[in-house]
Design a protein around this nucleic acid. Structure first.
Lengths: 212, 212
DNA sequence: GAAAAACGGTGATCAAAATCACCGTTTTCT
DNA sequence: AGAAAACGGTGATTTTGATCACCGTTTTTC
């Protein structure tokens, strides 16, 4: 199993130098999570850097009793979850929940700091990733503020279809509502409306997106 | 004037090594902006890193015809505006508008990249700052989603008072509305309501915050 | 196979905020 | 000083989405 994990590391970081790779596999540890479980819970203090090796994670904000989806972390595109807390220990301000069965590797903070100056590639990867997180968050914020729920739902479904590479979306109205920070009834009504306008078709257990 | 600007750099980066400081003053250029002018406009391509030396800037998102405040950049606490665009040239997804008369220094991208690996202090400053931006953005997003306009207005005013170190807030209802992404009438009604509950008092040209 | 749990639909009602319309006051500009 | 522009107040109306209530169907579980 360790061998499998090591191959994930190679896949996620195809360009790192051999020495860095060796250091990583010496210091990291692996954690497996089933779908829909917490990897990080808002308010916790982390002394490690979580990296998604396989699977998918969604970042959630929680405030008062409302929670809502911020953005996704995939293993494919890049893997760093966040380093918000690395240099200045504070409780994290969001939660991370697995979207499917997921393997996470954790790197100790002190090593991360060390590698950050020692290996420009490593710094580059982290920066790059953080940048993407920032851009994703900004995009989400804009959509929340500027678009109505209907548009947001369509985007959400399109995004889901794209990530799953399938037009069939296996999600209950309730789960969708949770991600969009609204209620089931609202989703139920809007999907109905979207069905009438031909954007999607609802089947027994899933939604089929029609957009070309 | 260059001397003044150089002293601003010292103030903003009190801990950098002399060699880095020398490199910065050799490569940077200075720009002065009056209050309420665009430093960066959403959609532009930047090939420099803007750093606020003096004054204050607010970051704005614009989408459709709605625009709203994301967070502030002060010269005091730290100065990096963003490096979202540094490593992977893309149009910036927000605008930066001066809140008062402001001096900005710009650093060429190639130098920034060079210093990033050459001077750990520099990397540290940038990361730290980016982190703060991320945290601020996240906080703003949560407030937008979870709080009603009344709460957001109070927070906005408290924040403004804190930044100005004065309970007297010289802002028109219209400007406030713009920052909060709503309309003047709404602000007008809520300030009235807050006046009745004793949270604030409205004077001729300004609002006085009462909360101890 | 029966009970329990999750799911989905829909009408009625409510609340927050956006929008429109109008009007008087204050400030700024020339 | 006089015109123009910005500012602020307020009623009426509308829209969006949240909430409540209720009910039938499907899926899971034991």
């Amino acid at each position: 199993m360790v061998d499998t994990n090591q191959s994930y590391i190679k896949q996620c970081f195809p360009v790192i130098e051999e020495r860095l790779y060796q250091e990583i596999i010496e210091s990291c540890s692996y954690h497996e999570f089933p779908s829909s479980s917490y990897v990080v819970k808002q308010g916790a203090y982390l002394n490690f850097l979580p990296v998604v090796l396989k699977g998918q994670i969604k970042m959630y904000a929680e405030e008062e009793d409302v929670q809502f989806l911020l953005y996704y972390i995939n293993s494919g595109e890049s893997c760093i979850l966040s380093f918000n807390h690395l240099f200045d220990p504070k409780p994290v301000q969001f939660s991370a929940i697995t979207e499917e069965d997921t393997v996470v590797m954790t790197l100790p903070v002190n090593k991360v700091k060390e590698w950050f100056v020692k290996y420009p590639t490593f710094a580059r990867i982290i920066i790059n990733d953080f940048q993407r997180n920032f851009a994703d968050l900004l995009q989400t914020t804009k959509e929340i503020v500027c678009f109505g729920i209907e548009d947001r739902l369509v985007k959400y479904l399109e995004n889901k279809a794209k990530r799953d590479k399938s037009n069939l979306i296996h999600l209950s109205h309730k789960k969708i509502a949770l991600d969009l920070g609204t209620s089931r009834e609202v989703i139920s009504r809007i999907t109905k409306k979207l069905e009438k306008t031909g954007v999607l078709v609802q089947h027994k257990r899933c939604i089929e997106l029609m957009g070309c």
